[in-house]
Amino acid sequence: MPNINEPVINISFGEGLNAFGNQSMLINPIVSIHTKYSPSVLSFAVVIVVSNFKNTDSSSPHSLHAKLYSAKNEEDSPLQFINNDQINNIPSSNLRLNWNLNNIDFKEPGEYIVECTFDGTTKKESFFIEADNILKQD
């Protein structure tokens, strides 16, 4: 159960995003992505929603950091990342980040993690890449 004084972070994955004005919808939520071959270049979407935070003015902005990495090689450089230390005047009680990840080079099947940190509170969520055939790499 989350601490009532900390932000709550939710991370979801889908095949894509559909935008309607200033709103969006996650298309076909997923937990795993199946591909014929590995390595492979894949595209998908991540939606991160943060709530239970105090809105601040520009003198004390929020920070949000997100990264995508392999669970097997967590210490390696992330495949993708977002760093924003200047989030001010969020217009509602939910901060939504729609992250389209296009043509990401996945070297091997396995577990991958999206990690989001908002004002010091961190949440990790996993998804999986599955492949029918593993191609030999030099």
Rank of each mutant, 00 (worst) to 15 (best):
K54I: 14
L26I: 08
I48D: 02
L95K: 02
S40V: 07
I30E: 07
T35E: 01
N84R: 06
V49A: 11
P91Y: 09
S32T: 10
P29L: 07
F53R: 02
L79T: 03
G21E: 12
Y37F: 09
R96Y: 12
P61R: 09
S92R: 06
S63Q: 13
N52P: 10
A66Y: 02
V41A: 07
N73H: 15
Q80G: 02
V41T: 12
D105S: 05
N88L: 09
A45Y: 02
N102L: 10
F106M: 00
K107D: 10
G110L: 01
Q86P: 00
S51L: 05
P29H: 07
K72V: 09
S70H: 11
R96H: 11
N88H: 10
E74V: 13
E108S: 13
K36G: 01
Q86W: 08
N103Q: 10
N52T: 05
P61Q: 08
K72P: 03
N88V: 15
L97M: 10
N94E: 14
N88D: 14
M25R: 13
A71K: 15
Y37I: 08
M25N: 11
V47L: 08
P61T: 05
K67S: 14
G110I: 00
N102V: 06
S93H: 09
I87F: 03
V31Y: 14
E75D: 15
S63N: 15
N94F: 13
K72E: 14
